[in-house]
């Protein structure tokens, strides 16, 4: 991974942001046109998301982020829109894998301690977060070594291209 220390602003969303809210089924015809699809990310819940976001900002959510369908496009459009990492109290199982599989870091922490607009610094070597605005340091759940390795290679496809198999 090129950059292990990430810096950006927090953009907050609530609990239970489903894949239907991230990228609704009604846009399924755009799934083979990802740049076009990415224009609609989160529009039903946070219409200002794409205009508000600067490259490298963090999407900071509550509980059960990404619940619902297995559509990997949900993780892809978040990454394409410029999000540097997802922070949440908890993340749905399939979405978690999908994000890591696209090299998009997911950190589980107490996001109540982050407000919208806070400046954050994330160190991916030890998965620590400093809220530069409030000075609060947050600890996160670690991910498995295999997931870390996938993240380090920038995602699952580059990982398999390089290793030709899973290495435990």
């Amino acid at each position: 991974m090129a950059n292990t220390v990430l810096r950006g602003r927090a953009i907050k969303v609530g609990d239970n942001i489903s894949t239907d809210l991230i990228i609704p089924g009604r846009f399924a015809h755009l799934r083979s046109n990802l740049p076009e699809l990415a224009k609609h990310v989160l529009e039903d819940t946070l219409p200002t998301f794409t205009s508000e976001l600067s490259e490298g900002d963090f999407l900071v959510a509550g509980e059960n982020f990404g619940l619902g369908s297995s559509r990997e496009h949900a993780a892809i459009v978040i990454k394409m829109s410029g999000v540097g990492a997802i922070l949440a109290k908890s993340v749905a199982h399939i979405f978690f894998r999908n994000a890591i599989n696209h090299g998009l870091p997911v950190l589980l922490c107490d996001t109540d301690r982050i407000s919208g607009g806070n400046e954050l610094e994330i160190d991916l070597t030890d998965f620590s977060i400093i809220n530069l605005t409030s000075g609060v340091r947050l600890s996160c759940n670690e991910i498995s070594p295999l997931m870390s390795a996938i993240l380090e290679e920038g995602g699952l496809i580059p990982y398999i291209r390089k290793h030709r198999d899973f290495e435990l």
């Binding site: 297995s70 559509r71 990997e72 993780a75 894998r97 999908n98 699952l156 496809i157 198999d165 899973f166």
Partner: peptide, 20 residues
Amino acid sequence: TGMGSSDAAVALALGKTWLR
């Protein structure tokens, strides 16, 4: 179990997947 497209792609290629 349900997975995303990349995991399915790798399962197609390897005939294997990883799980916790």
